[in-house]
Amino acid sequence: MLLKKLGLSLGVFLTIAASVTGLVIIPNWQFQGHQPMRKADGTQYPLPYFGEQAKGRAVYIDQGCIYCHSQQVRMKGYGADIRRNWGTRRSVPRDYMYHRPHQLGTMRTGPDLASIGHRQPSATWHALHLYDPRITSPGSNMPRFNYLFTEMRDGDALPVGAFPGDVIKIPPQFQNSGITQLVPNERGKALIEYLKALNQSFPLPEAQQ
């Protein structure tokens, strides 16, 4: 009698319980055995993000970079991810074992960033690009993140806590209203550190398939 009353509800509940078990719980259980590997220089891969990099990751999330940039490289022969130099190999589950929240992303209004730190290690480039993407990438439709920088005119004193080495010159043709130099602020610096740390070039064995 009760079963007849609740039959519909029970059946419906079972459908969703089945899919969450099959698609989330079982794969998660399959990933449990993943361990980081030791690189030639003694460091480990992958490593959890900490310090500046973790702070930068929070900025990446807060600014919503995921809505235009993915962080996953598809295999050779499926799309042109590797030929576009977005990575040296495909991404595998182990690359993400410490990622919380995940930032895989499903949109490429801009290029994939899974290994941006590998193909673009220059902090200067990242700073100029974040300050105004049109400096380094003419025609880009990425927003400016000028609020991650302190703008300086010639002769301005350094902002508190910045070193002379942090100052970045804006190429002359992009200088506006006397602003000639930039210093990334705390968040900007952290974000650049995080972007430079995005690197999936270590050849994990399961990535060779």
């Binding site: 030929r83 576009r84 130099n85 193909r119 673009q120 480039w125 380094t136 003419p138 010159k169 190429p171």
Partner: peptide
């Protein structure tokens, strides 16, 4: 030309770089 797409970030599509930086 295909490989050069990876270089344009800094050296630019016209190969002129960015004054003072690249």
């Amino acid at each position: 030309a295909e490989v050069y797409n990876a270089c344009t970030q800094c050296h630019q599509a016209d190969g002129k770089g960015l004054a003072g930086q690249f």
